[in-house]
C-alpha cells in the first residue's frame, strides 16, 4: 500500500469527524510516514508499522468517543439505492444497445428469408400466370376447334384448369388475409391482459421502492414485481415480433428480380 492509498482509506474510516479534524489527523500521519521514509524505511514498511487500518481507525475514533462500527449504525438508504440505480442504468443501456444490435441482425435475416420466400413464390406463380396467357395467344389458331371435338375438349380443359388455378390463387390470397387478421386480433387480445399486468406491477414497483426507502422490508416483493414487469415487457416485445405484417415488399422483390 502506498501513502496515498493509506491516507485515503484512513479518511474513509474517519469521515464522520469534522473535516478540519480529519485533515489534522491525516497530516500528522502523512508527516510521520514522510519522516520514517527520510529515516531510511520504504513507504510500504513505514505504513506496515501502523498495523491494521481498522484497529488504527478504531483507536482514533475512540479519542472522540465514537464507536468504530459507526458506519453500520448510520442509515444511508439513499446512497446505496442511488448507486444501484446508476449501475442499473448503465447496465440497462448496454443491454439495450445489445438488444438493438441483435434485433437489427434478426430483422435483416428475417427480411432476407421473406424475400427468398417471395422470390420462390413468384417463380412458382409465374408459370401459372403464363398459363392463362397461352390460350389467348393460341386463340387465333383455335378457330378450327369446332371442327374437331377433341380439340374443343382440349381447349375447354385448358380453360377450366386456368380458371381453377386463378380461383385457387384468389382463395389462397383471401385465406391469407383472413388468417392474418385473425392472428393479429388474437395477438392483440392476448396482449391486453399482459399490458394491464405490466402497468399494475409498475405501479406496485414504484410503491415498493418508496416503502423500501422508508425502511420496510419489501426488497423481496420489489424484486418479484420488477421481475414480473421485466418478464411482461419481454413477452410484449416477443409478441411484437409475431405480428403478421402486410407483405408490401413486392416492389423490392421486383427490383431484385
Amino acid at each position: 500500500m502506498n501513502k496515498e492509498d493509506f491516507l485515503k482509506q484512513l479518511q474513509e474510516r474517519i469521515r464522520i469527524l469534522q473535516p478540519s479534524e480529519q485533515q489534522d489527523i491525516l497530516e500528522e500521519y502523512a508527516q510521520h510516514i514522510q519522516m520514517r521514509m527520510e529515516g531510511g524505511l520504504s513507504e510500504d514498511e513505514a505504513i506496515r508499522d501502523f498495523g491494521s487500518l481498522d484497529d488504527l481507525a478504531a483507536e482514533i475514533l475512540e479519542a472522540y468517543h465514537i464507536s468504530p462500527d459507526w458506519q453500520s449504525k448510520i442509515k444511508e438508504p439513499i446512497a446505496p439505492v442511488k448507486e444501484a440505480a446508476i449501475q442499473c442504468a448503465g447496465w440497462l443501456e448496454r443491454f439495450w444497445q445489445k438488444c438493438r444490435a441483435a434485433w437489427g441482425k434478426f430483422r435483416k435475416w428475417l427480411s432476407g428469408q421473406w424475400q427468398n420466400l417471395q422470390l420462390r413464390l413468384k417463380k412458382e406463380d409465374a408459370p401459372e400466370q403464363e398459363v392463362p396467357e397461352q390460350p389467348k395467344l393460341e386463340k387465333p389458331p383455335k378457330q378450327p376447334r369446332p371442327h374437331t371435338f377433341w380439340g374443343w375438349i382440349k381447349d375447354m380443359n385448358r380453360r377450366l384448369w386456368g380458371m381453377i388455378g386463378a380461383l385457387f390463387a384468389w382463395a389462397i390470397r383471401v385465406a391469407k388475409i383472413l388468417c392474418r387478421w385473425a392472428w393479429n386480433a388474437a395477438l392483440l387480445c392476448a396482449a391486453v391482459p399482459v399490458v394491464c399486468a405490466v402497468g399494475f406491477f409498475l405501479v406496485c414497483t414504484g410503491t415498493l421502492v418508496v416503502l423500501l426507502v422508508q425502511g420496510y422490508p419489501a426488497l423481496g416483493l420489489l424484486l418479484g414485481s420488477i421481475g414480473i414487469v421485466v418478464c411482461g415487457c419481454g413477452v410484449l416485445v416477443f409478441a411484437c415480433t409475431l405480428i403478421w405484417k402486410k407483405p408490401n415488399n413486392n416492389k423490392e422483390v421486383g427490383d431484385h428480380a
Binding site: 489527523i25 500528522e28 500521519y29 510521520h32 508499522d49 501502523f50 498495523g51 488504527l56 483507536e59 482514533i60 475512540e62 479519542a63 472522540y64
Partner: peptide
C-alpha cells in the same frame, strides 16, 4: 505500534 500514539495524543488534546 507507532500508529496508536497519535490517537492517544488526540484524545489527551481533546
Amino acid at each position: 505500534n507507532e500508529g496508536t500514539i497519535y490517537p492517544l495524543l488526540k484524545r489527551l488534546t481533546n
